[in-house]
Design a protein around this nucleic acid. Sequence first.
DNA 1: TAGAACCTTCACGTGGACGACAATGTTGGT
DNA 2: ACCAACATTGTCGTCCACGTGAAGGTTCTA
Lengths: 162, 162
Amino acid sequence: MNANADAEAATARFQIGEVADRTGVTQRTLRFYEEKGLLRPPERMDGGFRLYSENDVTRIGYIKQLQDLLGFTLSEIKDMVEAEDLLQQMSATRRPDRELPERLQRSEQILGALTKQLDVVEHKVEHLTLLREELRAKMTRVTQRRTEILNALEQEQAVSEL
Amino acid sequence: MNANADAEAATARFQIGEVADRTGVTQRTLRFYEEKGLLRPPERMDGGFRLYSENDVTRIGYIKQLQDLLGFTLSEIKDMVEAEDLLQQMSATRRPDRELPERLQRSEQILGALTKQLDVVEHKVEHLTLLREELRAKMTRVTQRRTEILNALEQEQAVSEL
DNA sequence: TAGAACCTTCACGTGGACGACAATGTTGGT
DNA sequence: ACCAACATTGTCGTCCACGTGAAGGTTCTA
């Protein structure tokens, strides 16, 4: 029953500086991400200072990962986190007061987004896997050559020791 | 014994325009790639016109694939095709007249490059696979929600039909 | 009430990946 | 010998992505 109690309750908030320190992303970049729709606008203090949640921090890490490790562009990442947002909203907003058709449409929309993403990811996986196999094949070829050479060297060694 | 016979022999050559047409890459880009070290300088006609081999054409396709499908940058791709070059050289230049230690070193060098590449690729595969699983999990969650909603709608329907 | 931390806005920078000429040279066919 | 088609190098421009910097003002906290 306190489903949205812990959503709103005493979860810690951080100012931008701290978030920057913790995530290794500059303040400037955090604002930039917000501007680009990668981060939902965080809460603000009365004076206008941004207040990030733990969740936001996690998200920033996620973004970095997608970017650095997987080479997605920011706009691709935007699509991903947007779907993520919808998803969270859907789960959080368990309001049966909404019209059912509306909620249905919502679900389909999210499904669509997810499907598109999955497509992209699966294609990438497929191609990368292929590439990996090629690389492995090459490696074994080279390794073989190398052992041949090593053997030849041993031979030489043996001969010279006579 | 005609190992390098077919390497040098009557393999077809193409001018840049034809290559551009066949690969869908502009002439400008081909020259650009060459400049950046992505393509080995091709042979030239007496007048200086570039003459590409079938092999080069293949390579260009490879590059495009790495770029478009896998999102590698040109400089990453450069590293990859450089290793590829070494590999081909090694295979082509089957000259036992070379000093063995030299050839050994060569092999190790290539192995190093390949290992590095493989590392990158494997990391990417790993992360992408993880991401894929997450996406799938989300999809099933949403799909479930959707069927719940559909059921609810049916109920409503049934009720209204009384 | 000082000084550190934050705010917005506007502009600027950088690197990657080409595109667009321009002026000149080459090739192949008639 | 000539012309159209094709290439050459070189320079400059462009467009996007991904930020960065700095100015000038506001808020927080000791």
